[in-house]
């Protein structure tokens, strides 16, 4: 489903990825672990085609970086759910509007939007906060809104970039168990983190990355 094969990708400054190999199969829960600056975010950017490899290739759900047109990037991203450490919510819109945003952007019908948004809000446990503004929510709740927004399009995979980095331990646990629930329903997850504790005692597939190189 997702495959990065012998990817090299450098930023103008000369930093970047030396040699990356990653595969994620449908329904898998994969951790991408490495220290700060190792290149985790860059791997995710390659997957949602925010950056292009200089050599090697990236394949995502039938799209291939070698022959993909820029115009197809939006179509690819509609199949991905992306979540960040800093939530990236729209501060001037309600919880409902934030989640509906994904569907508005992809031209869904108004009636479908309401149904889908309420369902996914229930799934992340925020059905009762649909009319709140982001600043009225705790960090953990805000991250759930972001997860709802990523899920509402029924993506094939969630790409999570250090999503518990801003949260207290309790909220962190909440979010992790939410992800596990989502995974149990069949959505693949690729979770980037520098935090080894998150995988301790869990039997998960792990890809380690250091200085721009993945280590199997």
């Amino acid at each position: 489903m997702i495959e990065l094969s012998n990817v090299k990708a450098f930023y103008p400054g000369g930093e970047g990825l030396e040699l990356v190999n990653v595969t994620v199969k449908p329904g898998e829960f994969v951790y991408l672990i490495g220290p700060s600056g190792a290149g985790k975010s860059s791997v995710l950017k390659l997957i949602y085609m925010d950056i292009k490899p200089q050599s090697g290739f990236v394949r995502v759900n039938g799209f291939n970086s070698l022959n993909m047109k820029r115009k197809q990037i939006p179509l690819l991203r509609r199949k991905l759910g992306i979540i960040f450490q800093d939530f990236k919510l729209l501060t001037d819109r309600t919880v409902f509007e934030n989640v509906a945003f994904t569907l508005n952007v992809t031209n869904s019908r108004q009636r479908d939007i309401k149904r889908k948004v309420l369902r996914v809000l229930a799934e992340v446990g925020l059905r009762h906060k649909e009319n709140k503004m982001p600043h009225e929510l705790s960090g953990g709740e805000q991250q759930r809104v972001a997860i709802a927004r990523a899920l509402v399009n029924e993506p094939i995979i969630l790409l999570a970039d250090e999503i518990t980095g801003n949260l207290d331990p309790l909220s962190e646990e909440d979010i992790i168990s939410l992800l596990e629930k989502i995974h149990a329903k069949g959505t693949a997850i690729l979770m980037a983190t520098h935090d080894n504790r998150l995988v301790r005692g869990k039997n998960r597939k792990i890809i380690r990355i250091e200085k721009g190189r993945t280590i199997n």
Binding site: Y48, P74, L76, K88, F101, V105, T106, N107
Partner: peptide, 16 residues
């Protein structure tokens, strides 16, 4: 720009 960034992330087309 933040709104635009999020639009891009969730798959909005350029014309949209």
């Amino acid at each position: 720009r933040k709104t635009i960034e999020i639009m891009k992330l969730v798959g909005a087309t350029r014309s949209f």
